[in-house]
Simulated assay, not measured.
Amino acid sequence: MIYLKQISLIALLAVFSFSCKPDNRAVADISDIDLKVVSENLDEELFACKSETEVQNFLNKHPNLGRYYFSDAPVEPGKLAGYLFSILQNQDFRTFKTQLDSLIGDRQTVIVDSLTKAFKHIKYYYPAFTAPKVEFMVSGFAGNDLYISDSLIIIGLDYFGGPNAMYRPDVFDYQLRRYQKEYIVPSIIFFISNRFNKISPGDQTLLADMIGYGKGYEFVRHMMPGTPQSLIIGYSEDNLKKTYNSQQDIWAYFIASKLLYEKNVLQKRKFIEERPFTTEIGQKVPGAIARWVGWRIVNLFMKENREVSIVELMEIENASRILQESGYSGQPDKVE
């Protein structure tokens, strides 16, 4: 089971060029894959409640909401029904809900159909995969942005109204750009990748963390082919270009500072966690830069080892092997 309070998506690199080595990976043909995503608009049911008692009945009917989605609600569980009913009486909130419906658009087309296509790709590579049920909620930020498990996904749509919404989630400015509807599905697929992403529990190095994230982003790229790369990791296009063009300096800093095999948690956090920028390297280097570098390494590994499938990649626990066989040393892609 995977639970997520804030979406951790950073950015992908610019367009990758391909080397001359033949690519023996099969193209995923999902046309015959039988998979359906069941979705339910629980927010509509909540907004139809006319009393606190009806809200409580609603919560009783959907216990997963209280157990998971409202796990960090601003009130204790016994007072949740009253709190939600008071929100429902707020006219500004109802106006926000109407606006949100317009900004999100048709949920089936924008979210469910896109999830279905991605899930079909997962099932192509992992036949035992079953699609989780999807539930939509709007609760005035009383719940979480996303809850993800093997069998259930709850999407708090109020978080994803984008820059034109009346209200935005209470997060840092540098995190706000990815709280838009376009980021919902890529973020879900990234976290589902954790189910398949094998990582050595004994390797506590920064390199292991980097490769772990990199494999996750590569997974999304395979399960959502054609998705704009900025949506997969969330850097702006400008940051993608700057990072790609300055990667030799970034890599040189990692090597000179002996960061790859760093195990100190506080030291690793400076390069793995989100920040406005990576102070230690420079203000033009975005935060979580180690994740970007990790994906760069993984991508080059896949280019150099075209016989390795995405399933086989996800099984590789040895981060040092991926680095070594990638041949990465801060260089940009070769121009064919």
Score class of each variant (00 low, 15 high):
residue 2 I to T: 10
residue 3 Y to A: 11
residue 4 L to H: 08
residue 7 I to G: 02
residue 7 I to A: 12
residue 7 I to R: 12
residue 8 S to V: 08
residue 9 L to Y: 01
residue 9 L to C: 10
residue 10 I to N: 11
residue 12 L to T: 01
residue 12 L to A: 02
residue 21 K to C: 02
residue 22 P to C: 06
residue 24 N to A: 04
residue 25 R to A: 09
residue 28 A to Q: 08
residue 28 A to L: 03
residue 29 D to T: 05
residue 33 I to F: 04
residue 36 K to L: 14
residue 38 V to W: 10
residue 42 L to M: 09
residue 43 D to E: 15
residue 44 E to H: 04
residue 44 E to P: 02
residue 46 L to M: 10
residue 50 K to Q: 15
residue 52 E to P: 06
residue 53 T to V: 12
residue 55 V to P: 00
residue 60 N to C: 05
residue 60 N to T: 15
residue 68 Y to I: 05
residue 68 Y to E: 12
residue 70 F to I: 03
residue 73 A to I: 13
residue 73 A to Y: 08
residue 78 G to D: 14
residue 78 G to H: 07
residue 79 K to S: 13
residue 80 L to Q: 05
residue 87 I to C: 14
residue 88 L to C: 01
residue 94 R to D: 03
residue 95 T to N: 15
residue 97 K to G: 08
residue 98 T to Y: 06
residue 102 S to E: 14
residue 106 D to F: 04
residue 107 R to W: 07
residue 107 R to N: 11
residue 118 A to T: 01
residue 119 F to E: 00
residue 120 K to T: 06
residue 120 K to H: 04
residue 122 I to Y: 01
residue 126 Y to T: 08
residue 128 A to D: 09
residue 135 E to S: 15
residue 137 M to Y: 03
residue 140 G to A: 13
residue 143 G to L: 09
residue 145 D to N: 11
residue 146 L to E: 12
residue 149 S to P: 00
residue 150 D to G: 09
residue 155 I to A: 14
residue 156 G to Y: 02
residue 159 Y to R: 00
residue 160 F to G: 10
residue 162 G to Y: 09
residue 166 M to N: 12
residue 168 R to Q: 13
residue 170 D to C: 05
residue 173 D to P: 03
residue 176 L to R: 06
residue 178 R to L: 13
residue 179 Y to T: 00
residue 183 Y to C: 05
residue 185 V to M: 06
residue 186 P to Q: 02
residue 189 I to L: 01
residue 198 K to Q: 14
residue 199 I to R: 10
residue 200 S to L: 10
residue 203 D to M: 07
residue 209 D to E: 11
residue 214 G to K: 12
residue 214 G to A: 10
residue 217 Y to I: 02
residue 221 R to D: 05
residue 223 M to H: 01
residue 224 M to E: 00
residue 224 M to D: 02
residue 226 G to L: 01
residue 229 Q to T: 13
residue 230 S to I: 07
residue 235 Y to R: 02
residue 235 Y to T: 04
residue 235 Y to W: 09
residue 245 N to S: 14
residue 249 D to N: 09
residue 254 F to Y: 07
residue 255 I to V: 15
residue 256 A to Y: 08
residue 259 L to T: 02
residue 260 L to Q: 00
residue 262 E to P: 02
residue 264 N to G: 13
residue 265 V to L: 08
residue 266 L to Q: 12
residue 271 F to W: 05
residue 273 E to N: 09
residue 274 E to V: 04
residue 275 R to C: 05
residue 276 P to G: 14
residue 277 F to P: 11
residue 278 T to I: 01
residue 278 T to Q: 01
residue 282 G to H: 04
residue 284 K to Y: 14
residue 287 G to W: 12
residue 287 G to P: 06
residue 287 G to K: 11
residue 288 A to T: 01
residue 290 A to K: 04
residue 291 R to A: 10
residue 292 W to F: 07
residue 293 V to T: 11
residue 295 W to Y: 14
residue 296 R to D: 13
residue 297 I to W: 14
residue 297 I to E: 13
residue 298 V to D: 00
residue 309 S to V: 02
residue 311 V to T: 13
residue 311 V to N: 10
residue 316 I to L: 06
residue 317 E to P: 06
residue 320 S to E: 15
residue 322 I to G: 05
residue 323 L to F: 09
residue 324 Q to P: 04
residue 325 E to R: 12
residue 326 S to A: 10
residue 327 G to V: 00
residue 330 G to L: 01
residue 330 G to N: 08
